[in-house]
Amino acid sequence: QEELVKAFKALLKEEKFSSQGEIVAALQEQGFDNINQSKVSRMLTKFGAVRTRNAKMEMVYCLPAELGV
């Protein structure tokens, strides 16, 4: 569980995922086979993730800066 949270936060820091499906796929690539869209959705809510525009003006998920991840 701890490893999943770390990987999840690291992915969001990249600010390149525009959908929950993309986050699920990226986590599965890292070996988290039991991850699915509903789990990702709950984690996004739990950590207060928001959708914002990145440098390329794409809408992407990211974590609020005050979490200091």
Rank of each mutant, 00 (worst) to 15 (best):
S19Q: 07
K6Y: 09
Q1A: 13
R42F: 13
G31Y: 02
Q30K: 09
F17C: 15
Q1Y: 15
E22D: 11
Q20H: 09
I35F: 03
F32S: 01
V5P: 03
Y61T: 02
E22M: 11
A65N: 11
E29N: 10
A49D: 02
L44K: 01
M59T: 07
A25L: 11
M43D: 00
E58R: 06
L44Q: 01
K6Q: 11
A49V: 08
Q30F: 07
S18N: 06
L12W: 03
I23K: 00
V40T: 02
T45D: 14
E58W: 03
V24M: 09
K39N: 10
L44N: 01
K56Y: 10
L11M: 08
C62L: 08
K46W: 14
P64K: 06
V24F: 05
S38E: 14
A7M: 07
T52K: 15
K39T: 14
Y61I: 05
Q37V: 13
A7H: 06
N36E: 06
I23S: 00
K6L: 12
M43R: 00
V5C: 15
M57K: 10
V40C: 01
S18E: 06
E15C: 15
Q28L: 13
L27M: 06
F32K: 01
A65M: 12
R53Y: 11
V50R: 09
L44T: 01
V40F: 01
Q1W: 14
V50L: 07
E14S: 13
F32E: 00
A65I: 11
A7N: 04
A7W: 05
C62H: 07
L63V: 04
R51K: 14
K56S: 10
K56N: 13
E66Q: 10
M43S: 00
S18C: 05
E58S: 04
K16Y: 04
D33W: 11
E14R: 06
A26V: 07
E58P: 03
Q28E: 08
I35D: 01
S18V: 11
K6I: 11
A10C: 06
E29W: 07
M59G: 04
F8V: 06
A26G: 03
K9F: 15
Q37I: 13
V5S: 09
V50M: 08
V24H: 03
L11A: 04
Y61A: 02
F17D: 01
Q28T: 09
K16I: 08
S38T: 11
R53I: 14
S38G: 11
A55R: 06
R53Q: 13
K39F: 13
K46L: 14
E3T: 11
E29P: 01
I35M: 09
A49T: 03
E3P: 09
F32I: 03
